[in-house]
Amino acid sequence: MPKILVCRDIGDKAMALLRAQPDWELVVWPNDSPADARWVEDKVQGCAGMICTLGEKITERIVGAAGDQLKVVSTMSVGVDHVDLHALAKRGIRLGYTPDVLTDAVADCSIMLALMASRCVTPAQSMLRSGTWGTLGWGPYLFCGPQLGAGPTGKQSTVGFLGFGRISQATLVRMAAFGVTHCVYYNSGRVDRTAADAALAAKLGLQSVKRVELPELASTSDVIFTLVPGGKETLHIVDEAFLRRMKKTAVLVNPGRGPIVDTNALIDALKEGWIWGAGLDVIEGEPHIPATHPLLHEPRCVIIPHIGSATIETREAMAMLCAQNLVGGLTEGKIDVEYTLS
């Protein structure tokens, strides 16, 4: 009887699919919280498959404790930096993950953060909640910020992307509706996208879409979305030098991974006015962010607790794909969406 470790109940529909598998023995973490690492290490022994989420660290120790029976790990996430890929690769363990289905939700959230940061929502809400709005009333330039897109002046407006995958391109589609005129992006790949970029610009009514290097991305963009994977290659890729190159009216939006942005450098950038503002769905050290964290008290910083994919429809789709990846991998040898291990 195959033993399956489920580190988190992933919802009625997905759990029903797992329970419908004949002869499977499900071992499910009983709490509505990330599974305890010691529990995982103990219960994973002898398992053929494992369901996990971002909240569980799938380490060399845990993979080793599973034994040779472990064939498939399926994570309910698009990010895989919580999984020791080397530990899986050297044992021939396959990894399923859940990209694509969250593209629209994260793109929507990215736009929300850009608007909130540019339109000074944090200080405006603080005044409203403190009951002091009446002391100022309406003012001609009270809580004004830079407009996304061309606006009433028809100015040139450039949106930048650090990483130009599915979510970035879905975000660009949304930004085009705000009247941006140009798009620049940086990615580490060297595939010639000239023709594809020209076609995309024509489709969206933009004057240009082009790849640039990091210094130009920083210096020319009015709003920058950081949407690259986490890991050593992208750790603090947005550092002090990058932030100092940005326009004073620019907004930085991070819906990707917290460590992409150097927190200390961002604090200085906001305090000293190197940039206009920041919108963060992710932050270094999450979820253990104390109430005293400096970014929580920066007026021009909007922070939300990693809810980019948090629509009911999206999370249900992620859960079903996670379950399908495990079922397919163990019963048919076919994972619907597999992360290529190297």
Rank of each mutant, 00 (worst) to 15 (best):
E56G: 03
S126V: 03
L270Y: 08
L200E: 00
V212K: 13
T331P: 00
P287G: 05
G328L: 07
G137T: 09
T314P: 06
V73F: 02
N254K: 07
L18P: 02
P146D: 04
A198L: 11
L5R: 03
G163I: 09
V337C: 11
L115D: 07
L162N: 06
D12R: 09
G96K: 11
C47I: 09
S188G: 15
V327P: 00
G145Y: 08
D262M: 02
T311W: 07
P255F: 04
T132A: 13
E313W: 00
G285A: 06
R174E: 08
S33L: 14
I307W: 01
P215M: 11
D268S: 12
P123D: 08
S219F: 06
I304D: 03
P287D: 06
G46F: 01
E338Q: 15
W29M: 06
V253Y: 11
A319I: 05
G329C: 06
P290L: 08
C120Y: 01
P99R: 11
L330M: 05
E332K: 14
G165A: 05
G79I: 10
R129K: 15
L200V: 00
T153D: 13
L88R: 10
F143Q: 14
A117Q: 09
C109E: 01
L54G: 13
T292Q: 11
D68G: 03
G329D: 03
A278R: 02
G179T: 07
R166D: 10
N31F: 15
L95W: 07
F143R: 12
K90W: 02
M318W: 03
L326Q: 04
L113C: 07
Q324I: 12
H86Y: 04
D108S: 11
W274D: 06
N187L: 12
I289F: 02
L115F: 13
V80D: 07
L321Y: 10
T53M: 14
A170N: 04
R166N: 12
F164M: 14
C120S: 14
F161D: 12
S33V: 13
G151Q: 12
C109K: 07
V337E: 08
M318F: 05
A48M: 13
V101E: 10
M1T: 13
W24T: 07
V238K: 02
A241G: 12
T311Q: 06
P255S: 08
A150P: 03
L296W: 10
R129S: 04
Q147K: 04
D222A: 02
G139Y: 05
S309W: 04
P259V: 11
H293S: 03
F143A: 12
I304Q: 09
V180C: 15
K43I: 00
L115E: 05
M76L: 15
H293Q: 08
G92D: 10
T340W: 01
H82E: 08
E213S: 13
H86K: 15
A87N: 06
S74C: 06
L26F: 11
P22K: 15
P2F: 09
P215S: 10
M246P: 09
R257G: 12
